[in-house]
């Protein structure tokens, strides 16, 4: 009896099947690869777009940074110009006030002489007679007589001076509005330790060198009180040997001080000293000048470097 036996697989069939399988797998993978490639391309395009946007933003940021720097510089220049314009106006007002004080002083001196002669005329008359008639003859007298006369005159002169001093010491405020002015200063403190001080006073710069020709006036009194406050602060701050340099800047009195080794609180010491000195200055009281010390950014007191005069 013949039995049917299974037909053996042919090589071709087997291989064909493999080929089909492979082709099918490959199509599937190809499709996946294509999909990934599309995704990669899309991502690359998105990245390129982002990169462009990033670059644009960075450029915009850089422009803004530059504008910030420009504005900071312009702000300093404007502050410098505004500050000196205000101080120049104050200096002009001080100068005007000096004229009023001089006129008042002249009138007061005339009245003073009249009132002193009325109250203590005999003392003054005796003093005058000695100066006019006795003093010229002293050299001809024996020394013992001369000594007696001079001793008596010294006693009389002390009395007369005391009368005059008490009369001139009383405070007579000027009949004018109070003039409010500022004395400004700035300090450079690179490591928190002050090493340079610049002060600007709304007084004519000529007080520093032309004081002998100008005479006593409000400009000089103000400058002197600033120097007094500064000297007291230097002494209190252990900087007694430091010499302030007085000069001019834009027509105003400027003072520069090398503060090497100053204490970190020197600014507070200076502010306290100036406040105390201005508050106890009778001549400024009489002139009705109220002075306020103000600390400002040092850059506002220094001439702008490259951009000076830009009018920013």
């Amino acid at each position: 009896m013949t039995t049917a036996s299974a037909k053996p697989a042919s090589v071709t069939g087997s291989i064909d099947e493999v080929v089909r399988w492979r082709a099918g797998e490959e199509v599937g993978l190809r499709n996946e690869i294509d999909a990934l490639d599309r995704e990669i391309d899309e991502m690359r395009a998105a990245m390129a777009a982002l990169s462009e946007r990033l670059e644009a933003r960075q450029s915009a940021r850089s422009t803004l940074d530059s504008r910030v720097r420009t504005i900071a510089n312009s702000g300093t220049i404007r502050a410098y110009q505004a500050l000196f314009a205000a101080l120049a106006e104050q200096a002009a007002a001080i100068s005007e006030r000096s004229g009023l004080v001089a006129a008042e002083e002249f009138a007061r001196n005339s009245n003073l002489e009249t009132s002193l002669m009325a109250s203590s005329g005999s003392l003054f008359e005796e003093y005058r007679q000695f100066k006019v008639t006795v003093e010229p003859t002293l050299s001809g007298l024996p020394e013992s007589y001369r000594k007696v006369l001079l001793a008596h005159h010294a006693e009389l002169a002390a009395k007369v001076r005391s009368v005059v001093e008490s009369a001139v010491e009383s405070i007579h405020p000027l009949g004018a509005e109070t003039l409010e002015i500022d004395v400004v200063w700035g300090m450079d403190s690179p490591d928190g330790t002050p090493d340079l001080l610049v002060m600007v006073v709304p007084a004519d710069e000529s007080v520093a060198t032309g004081w002998a020709d100008r005479g006593d006036d409000v400009d000089l009194w103000l400058a002197a009180r600033v120097v007094q406050g500064l000297s007291e602060a230097l002494l209190a701050g252990g900087l007694a040997g430091v010499r302030p340099a007085l000069g001019g800047h834009r027509g105003l009195l400027a003072i520069e001080v090398d503060l090497a080794d100053a204490r970190p609180d020197f600014g507070a010491v200076l502010a306290a000293a100036l406040t105390r000195v201005f508050a106890a200055a009778p001549e400024l009281d009489e002139a009705r000048v109220k002075v306020t010390p103000r600390q400002v950014d040092l850059d506002w007191l220094l001439p702008p470097e490259s951009t000076e005069g830009s009018g920013a």
């Binding site: 003093y127 005479g215 006593d216 000089l220 002197a224």
Partner: peptide, 12 residues
């Protein structure tokens, strides 16, 4: 005369 008897101002 009063002037010469007064204390001196800052400049003088």
């Amino acid at each position: 005369m009063i002037r010469e008897l007064r204390p001196l101002g800052l400049v003088d």
